[in-house]
């Protein structure tokens, strides 16, 4: 049997909790789940990691994980099935944001050139934020 090196016992994604961010842990989990859905890493039918799996990976309180999942359920994105786990029911991925999208590929090419030119991560972030703020001025509605 061939084992997929990318497969985790804990499910398709893993949450990273930043203790010092000042953002409540359950909100971080909600954001990361949505981000994974937008990127097409989590799709309808996929199971979210169980509270136990998240606890083993990050030592957060399982009640916090369940609170995040209830929030996702309230937003109609996932569904808890008793005894089975919590499953994604809605897709947030679209052709513009999924991993194979042309825009993403162009950005990846651009960042490859930045690495080649010897730019550090701060330089890249500064460039990206600068251009983004030109195109998406703060205070205007985003969608």
């Amino acid at each position: 049997m061939v084992t997929d090196p990318g497969a985790y016992a804990g499910g398709v994604i893993e949450f990273r909790i930043d203790r010092r961010s000042g953002v409540a842990t359950y909100i971080q989990i909600v954001h990361q789940a949505k981000q994974a859905m937008r990127l097409g890493l989590l799709n309808p039918g996929d199971r979210l990691p169980t509270a136990r799996e998240v606890v083993e990976a990050t030592a957060v309180n399982p009640n916090t994980v369940l609170k995040a999942y209830r929030e996702l359920e309230r937003e109609g994105l996932v569904e808890a099935r008793r005894g089975l786990g919590t499953f994604v029911t809605k897709s947030l991925a679209n052709d513009a944001t999924n991993r194979g999208a042309p825009l993403r590929q162009e950005l990846a090419d651009w960042m490859g050139r930045a690495v080649h030119a010897g730019l550090g991560v701060d330089d890249v972030d500064a460039l990206y934020v600068d251009v983004r703020e030109e195109r998406y001025p703060i205070g205007e509605p985003r969608s």
């Binding site: 136990r52 399982p62 009640n63």
Partner: peptide, 14 residues
């Protein structure tokens, strides 16, 4: 400390 909390949180989850 992290590992102790992990054991306790696993107990809560289980």
């Amino acid at each position: 400390r992290d590992e102790t909390l992990r054991i306790v949180m696993t107990e809560v989850a289980d």
